[in-house]
Design a protein around this nucleic acid. Structure first.
Lengths: 108, 108
DNA sequence: ATTATATGACACCATTTGGTGTCGTGTCAA
DNA sequence: TTGACACGACACCAAATGGTGTCATATAAT
């Protein structure tokens, strides 16, 4: 079913703030070419391109050539893996859990 | 209110699989000493200790000395930041969103 | 008192990371 | 047809990462 062609760990891909900003930018438009993405950062085109490659390896973006530009598109689906991972730990910060901790601490 | 003393990015802290496993181990017990954690991995004590330091810098664990051992305890709360970040993108993989994409593609 | 255990603090090392600059090529516009 | 533009593919570099081993010290056990 769901293809698992990820060369790169999704957790790794979102670890960098630049890459998270790229994801955000791509979530606001259907498709954005490299030069337009680069304009949003201080760093050069090569660096942005490298970050996009890492996102692509994690399956988080798709790209296609249109004339002389390469346009990128978000594919957020792999982020679901992180959400699933987090859901296991959410019980540790739920309101009930915090109340429970308070009770334990009061007993000591 | 909520202290923001994080020296280290939480996204960075969970990027490493060893550190995610440490989080998992710590979620199963109240407190675990370093030597016991080390026993769960192939790598040496120094390496595990470094990973724990990174988790601590991200605010994900607490430690206290008990006799000659240092015991570690999970503090999952900082993970909430990632959950909040993800919640913005969850709309991209919701069932409704997938249906909507199908409709768009059918129109083309 | 002696020995074994648990740890912190280092020094060290190979590899990865995140940036730079340059060169060559395909594409669009004048 | 001549530039200007957008890009991929390099080569390159400093710093961070993820390991190792060793030494000194505090504590526990015999």
């Amino acid at each position: 079913m769901s293809e698992n062609n990820q060369l790169r760990d999704v957790y790794d891909a979102i670890a960098d703030p630049t890459r998270r900003q790229l994801i955000h930018l791509l979530s606001e438009s259907e498709e954005i070419p490299l030069h337009e993405l680069t304009a949003q950062f201080q760093m050069g085109r090569t660096a942005v391109s490298k970050h996009l490659t890492i996102l692509k390896e994690a399956g988080l973006i798709l790209d296609r050539k249109v004339g002389r530009e390469t346009r990128f598109k978000l594919n957020a689906a792999p982020l679901r893996e992180i959400q699933d991972w987090l859901s296991f730990y959410s019980k540790f910060w739920s309101t009930n859990m915090l109340r429970l901790n308070q009770l334990f601490e009061e007993e000591e």
